[in-house]
């Protein structure tokens, strides 16, 4: 499989001092990757929107049938509207207004407000579920590598089974059975998504375990717990950061996909839920399906760019 070459400079004693210099070294390596910087900038922007946005936008759940199916600013569409007085369909031209910059959906809800609310949902789910998955994966990976023997065997077989398990189907089942609440979705994704982390962390720890500085610490009589927390975990942290960054897009997409097939939390407008609704109004209001998708694409892209840049920056083999 993927043989990670043993490389000098990876044994970063720097975590025990000079951490700042190291961080700035990695930052410089990453900064050379323009796409990674774009990714980071977009993520920061999105986080700001998710945190501060709701104070500036109307209530995303507020329905206004007077202003339904309004296109975004700069677009004009022709609509057939049923007129009660004349009992006839009349064709009107509707243009987007700054009151609803991104338009409205078929219930007249403000798209901008829904997109902002969706950003909040996506980031929450992405960070929380990834956090859970990474913690479980790291614990299992380090335990497996460090304890070895039958524990390693059992844990890895268990990981195998989990890996073979159809991840998305499992999610659908769990969410269907236990009900579509956001907390459950986060928990379900976190509890099922740790397998890749466990494997990578295990193999990285295995190669670290035999390195001089860990051997030295053990020879000096450091306890197992100390070796793990002071030496192993700090040294797999760069790997974990990369895995986490690259896992977030998958998690965000999983939540969106669940919402898209009707298993989203109906109480919070998420991008997936808006998209699901938009799918049914393609002929009358195309923007409802387009806008959340673009946000999803940009968000996933940003995390992928950033993760890739981080991986290159941490990888001593690559010369960015």
């Amino acid at each position: 499989m993927n043989e990670r070459k043993e490389t000098a400079g990876k044994d970063r004693a720097a975590f025990h001092g000079g951490g700042f210099r190291l961080a700035s070294y990695y930052w410089q390596r990453m900064a050379r990757n323009r796409l990674a910087i774009f990714g980071l900038a977009f993520i920061i922007f999105l986080a700001l929107v998710a945190i501060a946005g709701p104070f500036f936008t109307p209530d995303p759940t507020e329905v206004d049938f007077e202003a339904k199916n309004m296109p975004p600013v700069g677009f004009t569409i022709t609509q057939s509207v049923y007129d009660i007085k004349t009992d006839q369909f009349i064709t009107t031209r509707v243009s987007g207004t700054w009151k609803h910059p991104l338009g409205t959906d078929r219930k007249g809800r403000d798209m901008l407000a829904m997109i902002v609310s969706g950003a909040r949902v996506s980031l929450q789910v992405g960070l929380l579920a990834t956090g859970i998955a990474i913690i479980i994966g790291t614990i299992i990976g380090v335990m497996s590598a460090y304890l070895g023997g039958w524990i390693d065997n059992a844990l890895m077989r268990f990981t195998d089974v989990m890996m073979t398990f159809p991840f998305f189907l499992l999610l659908v089942l769990i969410v269907f059975i236990f009900g579509p609440s956001l907390a459950f979705i986060v928990l379900a994704i976190g509890l099922t998504g740790w397998t890749g982390t466990a494997r990578l962390v295990r193999s990285e720890s295995l190669s670290l375990r035999t390195r001089e500085f860990v051997m030295a610490a053990k020879a000096l009589g450091a306890s197992d717990g100390r070796v793990v927390f002071r030496h192993l975990i700090p040294n797999v942290i760069s790997l974990i950061i990369v895995i986490a960054t690259l896992s977030i897009p998958g998690v965000i997409l999983a939540e969106a996909a669940l919402s898209f097939i009707g298993l989203g939390d109906p109480t919070v407008p998420s991008w997936g839920i808006i998209l699901e609704e938009g799918q049914h109004s393609l002929t009358t209001a195309w923007w409802v399906a387009v806008e959340p998708g673009i946000m999803l694409l940009l968000t996933v892209l940003a995390f992928n760019f950033l993760g890739d840049g981080l991986r290159d920056a941490f990888d001593p083999k690559s010369n960015v």
Partner: peptide, 9 residues
């Protein structure tokens, strides 16, 4: 990066 269900839509 493109969500495939969105691409389909």
């Amino acid at each position: 990066s493109i969500p495939n269900f969105w691409l389909g839509v």
